Simulated scan of single mutants.
Amino acid sequence: MDRIVGYIASSLDGFIAAPGDDLDWLFRYDGMYLGAHDYNIFLKRIRTVVMGRGTYDFLEIDPSPWAYGQQRVIVVTSQPIKAPKDTLEIRSDADELISELRSLQDGDVWMLGGGQLQMAFLKRDALDELEIYVMPNLLGGGTALFPATGLRANAQLISAQALDRGCVRLHYAFKLTSTGG
Protein backbone atom coordinates (compact mmCIF):
# COMPACT_ATOMS: atom_id res chain seq x y z
CA MET A 1 0.00 0.00 0.00
CA ASP A 2 1.29 3.42 -0.91
CA ARG A 3 1.06 6.44 1.35
CA ILE A 4 -1.56 9.16 1.01
CA VAL A 5 0.21 12.41 1.78
CA GLY A 6 -0.35 16.14 1.96
CA TYR A 7 2.23 18.75 0.94
CA ILE A 8 1.03 22.30 1.48
CA ALA A 9 2.16 25.81 2.39
CA SER A 10 0.50 27.92 5.04
CA SER A 11 0.91 31.39 6.44
CA LEU A 12 2.05 31.75 10.02
CA ASP A 13 -1.54 32.48 11.03
CA GLY A 14 -2.87 29.31 9.39
CA PHE A 15 -4.15 30.37 5.97
CA ILE A 16 -3.36 28.76 2.62
CA ALA A 17 -4.75 31.65 0.59
CA ALA A 18 -5.44 35.29 1.31
CA PRO A 19 -8.99 36.61 0.81
CA GLY A 20 -10.21 36.10 -2.75
CA ASP A 21 -8.03 32.98 -3.16
CA ASP A 22 -5.02 35.28 -3.55
CA LEU A 23 -1.70 33.40 -3.60
CA ASP A 24 0.57 36.36 -4.38
CA TRP A 25 2.00 36.17 -0.85
CA LEU A 26 3.13 32.60 -1.58
CA PHE A 27 4.45 33.25 -5.09
CA ARG A 28 7.03 35.59 -3.56
CA TYR A 29 8.75 32.43 -2.33
CA ASP A 30 9.20 30.92 -5.80
CA GLY A 31 12.76 29.72 -6.12
CA MET A 32 13.18 29.26 -2.39
CA TYR A 33 15.77 26.61 -1.55
CA LEU A 34 14.12 23.56 0.04
CA GLY A 35 16.90 21.04 -0.55
CA ALA A 36 15.65 17.44 -0.32
CA HIS A 37 12.12 18.76 0.27
CA ASP A 38 11.89 20.66 -3.02
CA TYR A 39 8.52 20.45 -4.78
CA ASN A 40 10.06 18.90 -7.92
CA ILE A 41 11.72 16.15 -5.87
CA PHE A 42 8.45 15.56 -4.01
CA LEU A 43 6.46 15.37 -7.25
CA LYS A 44 8.75 12.65 -8.67
CA ARG A 45 7.59 10.17 -6.03
CA ILE A 46 3.90 10.94 -6.64
CA ARG A 47 1.99 8.66 -9.00
CA THR A 48 -1.54 9.85 -8.25
CA VAL A 49 -2.73 13.41 -7.54
CA VAL A 50 -6.11 13.85 -5.86
CA MET A 51 -7.71 17.29 -5.65
CA GLY A 52 -11.08 18.80 -4.91
CA ARG A 53 -13.12 20.78 -7.37
CA GLY A 54 -12.09 24.15 -5.95
CA THR A 55 -8.41 23.36 -6.47
CA TYR A 56 -9.07 22.07 -9.98
CA ASP A 57 -11.06 25.18 -10.90
CA PHE A 58 -8.20 27.36 -9.61
CA LEU A 59 -5.65 25.40 -11.66
CA GLU A 60 -7.89 25.36 -14.72
CA ILE A 61 -7.78 29.14 -15.08
CA ASP A 62 -4.07 29.34 -14.30
CA PRO A 63 -2.19 30.08 -17.55
CA SER A 64 0.79 27.96 -16.45
CA PRO A 65 1.31 24.61 -18.17
CA TRP A 66 -0.40 21.64 -16.52
CA ALA A 67 2.16 20.30 -14.04
CA TYR A 68 0.71 16.82 -13.60
CA GLY A 69 1.17 15.18 -16.98
CA GLN A 70 3.26 12.38 -15.45
CA GLN A 71 0.68 11.53 -12.79
CA ARG A 72 -2.79 10.09 -12.72
CA VAL A 73 -5.10 12.96 -11.69
CA ILE A 74 -8.37 12.48 -9.85
CA VAL A 75 -10.78 15.33 -9.12
CA VAL A 76 -13.27 14.73 -6.33
CA THR A 77 -16.50 16.41 -7.42
CA SER A 78 -20.14 15.65 -8.04
CA GLN A 79 -20.26 18.00 -11.04
CA PRO A 80 -18.96 17.20 -14.53
CA ILE A 81 -15.94 19.03 -15.91
CA LYS A 82 -16.89 20.08 -19.42
CA ALA A 83 -13.48 20.78 -20.95
CA PRO A 84 -10.70 19.40 -18.72
CA LYS A 85 -7.33 21.10 -18.89
CA ASP A 86 -5.69 17.67 -19.24
CA THR A 87 -6.46 13.99 -18.76
CA LEU A 88 -8.20 13.40 -15.44
CA GLU A 89 -10.68 11.17 -13.69
CA ILE A 90 -13.69 12.28 -11.67
CA ARG A 91 -14.85 10.63 -8.46
CA SER A 92 -17.72 11.63 -6.22
CA ASP A 93 -17.64 8.93 -3.53
CA ALA A 94 -14.77 9.54 -1.10
CA ASP A 95 -15.11 6.13 0.58
CA GLU A 96 -14.85 4.25 -2.73
CA LEU A 97 -11.93 6.45 -3.78
CA ILE A 98 -10.05 5.81 -0.54
CA SER A 99 -10.52 2.06 -0.96
CA GLU A 100 -9.17 2.32 -4.51
CA LEU A 101 -6.21 4.48 -3.43
CA ARG A 102 -5.35 2.09 -0.60
CA SER A 103 -4.95 -0.73 -3.15
CA LEU A 104 -2.37 1.16 -5.23
CA GLN A 105 1.27 0.08 -5.25
CA ASP A 106 2.86 2.33 -7.86
CA GLY A 107 3.86 5.42 -5.83
CA ASP A 108 2.49 7.84 -3.29
CA VAL A 109 -0.81 9.68 -3.56
CA TRP A 110 -0.81 13.45 -3.05
CA MET A 111 -3.81 15.28 -1.63
CA LEU A 112 -3.29 18.52 -3.56
CA GLY A 113 -4.90 21.75 -2.47
CA GLY A 114 -6.98 22.99 0.36
CA GLY A 115 -7.92 21.52 3.67
CA GLN A 116 -11.50 20.45 2.91
CA LEU A 117 -10.50 17.31 1.04
CA GLN A 118 -7.67 16.63 3.47
CA MET A 119 -10.16 16.87 6.33
CA ALA A 120 -12.51 14.46 4.56
CA PHE A 121 -9.63 11.98 4.30
CA LEU A 122 -8.55 12.60 7.90
CA LYS A 123 -12.09 11.84 9.10
CA ARG A 124 -11.77 8.48 7.35
CA ASP A 125 -8.27 7.76 8.74
CA ALA A 126 -6.95 8.03 5.20
CA LEU A 127 -4.23 10.71 5.35
CA ASP A 128 -0.96 9.09 6.33
CA GLU A 129 1.43 12.03 6.39
CA LEU A 130 1.33 15.78 6.03
CA GLU A 131 4.14 18.20 5.22
CA ILE A 132 3.25 21.81 6.06
CA TYR A 133 5.56 24.60 4.95
CA VAL A 134 4.86 27.50 7.30
CA MET A 135 5.80 30.83 5.73
CA PRO A 136 6.62 33.85 7.89
CA ASN A 137 3.59 35.86 6.80
CA LEU A 138 0.44 36.93 8.63
CA LEU A 139 -2.46 37.13 6.20
CA GLY A 140 -5.14 38.13 8.67
CA GLY A 141 -7.79 36.05 6.93
CA GLY A 142 -8.52 33.94 3.90
CA THR A 143 -8.82 30.21 3.38
CA ALA A 144 -7.91 28.25 6.51
CA LEU A 145 -5.39 25.43 6.34
CA PHE A 146 -7.97 23.24 8.06
CA PRO A 147 -11.62 24.24 7.98
CA ALA A 148 -13.49 23.83 11.24
CA THR A 149 -15.21 20.45 11.06
CA GLY A 150 -15.27 19.32 14.67
CA LEU A 151 -12.68 16.60 14.00
CA ARG A 152 -10.18 16.16 16.80
CA ALA A 153 -7.12 14.04 16.06
CA ASN A 154 -3.54 13.63 17.17
CA ALA A 155 -0.58 13.71 14.83
CA GLN A 156 2.92 12.46 15.48
CA LEU A 157 5.71 14.89 14.64
CA ILE A 158 8.24 13.23 12.35
CA SER A 159 10.42 16.30 11.95
CA ALA A 160 10.57 20.08 12.13
CA GLN A 161 13.15 21.98 10.15
CA ALA A 162 13.99 25.64 9.54
CA LEU A 163 14.52 26.27 5.83
CA ASP A 164 15.32 29.19 3.54
CA ARG A 165 13.76 32.65 4.05
CA GLY A 166 12.23 31.85 7.43
CA CYS A 167 10.12 28.92 6.22
CA VAL A 168 9.61 26.04 8.66
CA ARG A 169 8.81 22.54 7.42
CA LEU A 170 6.61 20.48 9.74
CA HIS A 171 6.24 16.81 8.87
CA TYR A 172 3.54 14.81 10.66
CA ALA A 173 2.24 11.24 10.56
CA PHE A 174 -1.34 10.40 11.38
CA LYS A 175 -2.32 7.32 13.28
CA LEU A 176 -5.70 8.66 14.04
CA THR A 177 -7.49 8.19 17.26
CA SER A 178 -10.32 10.51 16.36
CA THR A 179 -12.31 11.97 19.21
CA GLY A 180 -15.04 13.77 17.31
CA GLY A 181 -16.31 14.86 13.96
Results as ranks from 00 to 15, higher is better:
Ile132Ser: 02
Leu157Gly: 04
Trp110Asn: 00
Arg152Lys: 14
Thr87Lys: 06
Leu112Gln: 09
Ile61Thr: 12
Leu88Trp: 05
Leu88Thr: 10
Gln161Ser: 02
Asp128Thr: 11
Gln105Asn: 05
Asp125Asn: 15
Leu130Asn: 09
Ile132Gln: 02
Gly107Glu: 14
Leu130Thr: 09
Leu117Phe: 08
Trp110Leu: 14
Ala144Pro: 11
Gln71Ala: 12
Asn154Val: 02
Ser64Thr: 03
Glu96Asp: 14
Gly114Pro: 09
Ala148Asp: 15
Asp62Gln: 03
Pro65Asp: 10
Thr149Pro: 12
Ser99Asp: 15
Asp108Tyr: 05
Leu117His: 07
Val73Phe: 03
Ala160His: 11
Gln118Leu: 14
Gly113Gln: 10
Gly141Leu: 10
Leu112Val: 10
Ile158Asn: 10
Asn154Lys: 08
Leu130Gln: 07
Leu122Cys: 02
Ala120Asp: 12
Ile158Cys: 04
Asp125Lys: 14
Asp93Trp: 03
Leu139Arg: 00
Pro147Glu: 07
Leu112Pro: 11
Pro65Tyr: 12
Glu100Gln: 07
Pro80Ala: 07
Asp108Leu: 04
Thr143Arg: 06
Leu139Gly: 08
Pro147Ile: 11
Arg72Trp: 10
Leu139Ile: 05
Ile132Trp: 09
Leu127Glu: 10
Glu129Gln: 08
Asp93Pro: 00
Glu96Pro: 06
Ile98Met: 09
Val75Ala: 09
Leu101Ala: 01
Ala160Asn: 06
Ser99Pro: 03
Met119Gln: 08
Thr87Trp: 00
Pro63Ala: 02
Ala67Ser: 03
Tyr133Met: 14
Gly140Ile: 05
Thr77Arg: 01
Val73Thr: 11
Gly114Val: 06
Asp125Val: 06
Ala148Phe: 03
Gly115Asn: 13
Thr149Arg: 04
Pro63Ser: 02
Thr87Ser: 04
Arg72Pro: 00
Met135Glu: 07
Phe121Glu: 00
Ile74Val: 15
Arg91Val: 14
Asp128Ser: 03
Ala148Tyr: 09
Thr143Val: 11
Ala160Ser: 07
Asn154Ser: 13
Asn154Arg: 13
Arg124Ile: 12
Phe146Asn: 01
Thr87Glu: 09
Gln161Arg: 06
Met119Trp: 08
Gln156Ala: 13
Gln161Pro: 01
Ile81Thr: 09
Met111Ile: 12
Ala94Asn: 01
Met111Leu: 15
Gln105Gly: 06
Met135Val: 15
Gly107Asn: 11
Pro65Met: 05
Asn137Trp: 03
Ala120Val: 14
Asp128Leu: 04
Ala148Lys: 07
Ser103Ile: 06
Leu104Arg: 15
Thr143Phe: 02
Gly140Leu: 10
Gln118Phe: 07
Gly69Gln: 05
Ala144Cys: 08
Asp125Pro: 00
Met111Gln: 11
Leu104Ser: 05
Leu130Phe: 14
Ile90Glu: 05
Glu100Ala: 03
Val109Leu: 02
Leu157Met: 15
Pro65Lys: 08
Val76Lys: 07
Glu89Asp: 14
Gly142Phe: 05
Leu138Lys: 02
Ile158Gln: 10
Asp106Lys: 05
Pro63Met: 09
Gln70Trp: 06
Pro136Asp: 06
Ala94Cys: 06
Glu131Cys: 13
Leu104Phe: 13
Ala94Trp: 01
Asp62Asn: 11
Arg152Glu: 15
Val134Asn: 05
Leu122Ile: 08
Gln116Asn: 10
Gln156Arg: 15
Val76Asn: 01
Ser103Met: 12
Thr77Gly: 03
Leu151Glu: 04
Arg72Ala: 12
Ala94Ile: 12
Ser99Arg: 13
